[in-house]
């Protein structure tokens, strides 16, 4: 990496962005698959698997963010925080905020298709609502 030759930083960054585009489609399919998996997870009766839920949400958070799907990434980040806060609180899995998790996953499904979902102001309101849910759940777990 310290050897002479190579390429300029500007060229490297441009090339990396171009290379990322070659996997955009497959990564979008990966996001869709993760959302489907999360949907099944929060739809299941009884206690779900928090770790699987967290990893799925963090995958969407990271992938959507890299490809500038910022609203989707933010919603997934809120779901990560929701689960993380519960785990950090040391509460029982049975007491996990599953209803809030379902709301988050439904929002992910909607935000994945911004062209089909509501206008930007409404989508922003959805994100504010998700953050509020996560904050409320954190307060409930702490208190």
């Amino acid at each position: 990496m310290r050897q002479s030759g190579g390429m300029s930083v500007a060229r490297a960054l441009q090339a990396a962005e171009e290379r990322l585009e070659t996997v955009r489609e497959s990564c979008m399919e990966g996001i869709d698959a993760s959302i489907e998996a999360l949907t099944a997870l929060v739809s299941a009766d009884g206690v779900g698997d928090l770790a699987t839920l967290y990893h799925g949400a963090s995958e969407i958070f990271a992938m959507a963010g890299t490809f500038q799907l910022n609203e989707l990434s933010e919603a997934a980040g809120s779901l990560c925080d929701l689960i993380d806060n519960h785990i950090e609180s040391g509460s029982e899995i049975a007491d996990a905020p599953w209803e809030s998790a379902r709301v988050h996953v439904n929002a992910l499904r909607t935000l994945r298709r911004p062209e089909l979902s509501a206008d930007q102001a409404t989508r922003r309101a959805v994100l504010v609502g998700l953050r509020r849910l996560t904050a409320q759940a954190k307060g409930a777990a702490a208190g």
Binding site: M1, R2, M7, V9
Partner: peptide, 12 residues
Amino acid sequence: LDPNGRINFESA
């Protein structure tokens, strides 16, 4: 990052 800086990952 300095856009004019150079990197070389060829043998890394």
